[in-house]
Amino acid sequence: MHENVRETVRRLCIHGARVTVVCSGGPFAASLRETSAQVLETDYELINGLVKEALKWGPFDLVHVHPGPSREFGLRLARVAGIPVCLTLHGEWLDNIHMFWDRFARIFTVSQAVRDKTLKAAPAAAGFVEMMPNGVDLEKFTVYQRLAPPESGRRPRVIVASRFDADKQRLTDFLVELWQVQKPEAVFHWEVAGTGTQIGQLQQAADRLNRTYGTDLVRFHGWLEASALYELYTVCDFSISPGRSAMESMAMGLPTVALGSQGCFGLITPDRTDQAAWSNFGGAGLLEQTAPTSVLEEMLRLWQSSAKFLATARFVADYIHKNFDAAHWHDQLESTYLSVLNGEMRPLVSDAKSPQFPT
């Protein structure tokens, strides 16, 4: 979410908008200031006082909120200022959307599964719900020219790119079990990019794995900037990652296992890409779980077939390039902002059940 918000803010500022972001202090707030945005830091403890303070930073034309305190603050600010408000829903938590849906000019969902869940909770909101998936910066993450069959005679290298916090405990638990069941005939090297409150659990599991095989099979890189993450992708063969990170690795031409907050989707093969996208690559709406042993077997089989490996790599890269270009979706968001400002609470003309991906 943070990466997507930062890129949205950056593009809005470039296009001449005056953007104010209300968020907690820290590295994210600092990075937003680099985009020329105003940043009002808060802990959301005193909502009414925060609204009064925010009004001094105006005037504003539109508010865009997320679930939780952000939603409560944004609705109050919009009511006082008399301006429209939009909401983005990211996963299983809908934040009582059935009680508030008619307060929003638009409700954005990051996947079809979240959209379906939203409409089940608030059927009358159908005309105001719009798909707005996360996208990939294809200027940073693209390696069509690098796609090649796997080299024989070496262990495959796997990147795991994610946050490792309490909301992604299933992801952490899965990796711990995956390393426990790794067998000599299916030994992989692991590159872990990211940090979080649960990273200690992974480090302990990695220490056990490294001791078992007498070599460093797992390396931790911490949080990486996009350029460093790109370089790490280029030396890996597979990815096991959630959401946006899964899409980035696919765009890079890496066969990818979608592993998110709701569990493991499994290896994304050409016949399962739409299903993976529906659940936001392991997030809300995941219908079936793939066991760690099955994931290792799937990856090993693909590694042992150069033709299938290359075909999968090309397909998933093509899929992301055609459907999840961040530039397209940020343009779509800005277009919706303008539509809302011109028509305010007017419902959408059509109520398509599927995302209208660019061609």
Results as ranks from 00 to 15, higher is better:
120 K>L: 11
116 D>L: 10
73 F>S: 03
158 V>A: 11
84 P>I: 06
102 D>N: 15
82 G>I: 12
145 Q>K: 15
134 N>I: 05
60 F>H: 10
95 D>F: 10
88 T>E: 09
98 H>V: 02
147 L>G: 03
106 R>T: 07
120 K>I: 08
117 K>D: 07
145 Q>L: 04
152 S>M: 10
135 G>Y: 02
152 S>D: 12
60 F>T: 04
86 C>I: 13
61 D>E: 14
151 E>A: 15
90 H>Q: 09
156 P>H: 12
151 E>D: 10
62 L>S: 02
144 Y>P: 09
121 A>H: 02
130 E>L: 14
109 T>Y: 06
116 D>P: 00
91 G>T: 04
155 R>D: 10
103 R>K: 15
69 P>Q: 11
85 V>S: 13
134 N>V: 13
72 E>V: 12
91 G>M: 03
65 V>W: 01
58 G>T: 05
134 N>T: 13
133 P>N: 01
105 A>W: 02
71 R>G: 02
80 V>F: 01
67 P>F: 12
97 I>E: 04
59 P>Y: 04
137 D>F: 01
133 P>Y: 00
142 T>G: 08
91 G>Q: 08
55 L>I: 09
75 L>M: 15
97 I>W: 05
89 L>I: 13
155 R>M: 14
101 W>E: 11
124 A>L: 13
107 I>A: 07
127 G>V: 01
126 A>Y: 00
83 I>P: 01
67 P>C: 10
127 G>M: 04
115 R>W: 00
113 A>Q: 08
66 H>A: 07
64 H>S: 11
132 M>L: 15
146 R>K: 14
89 L>G: 11
133 P>A: 03
102 D>R: 13
79 R>Y: 06
126 A>G: 00
78 A>Y: 09
88 T>L: 06
73 F>E: 06
87 L>S: 10
103 R>N: 14
149 P>V: 11
58 G>R: 06
105 A>V: 08
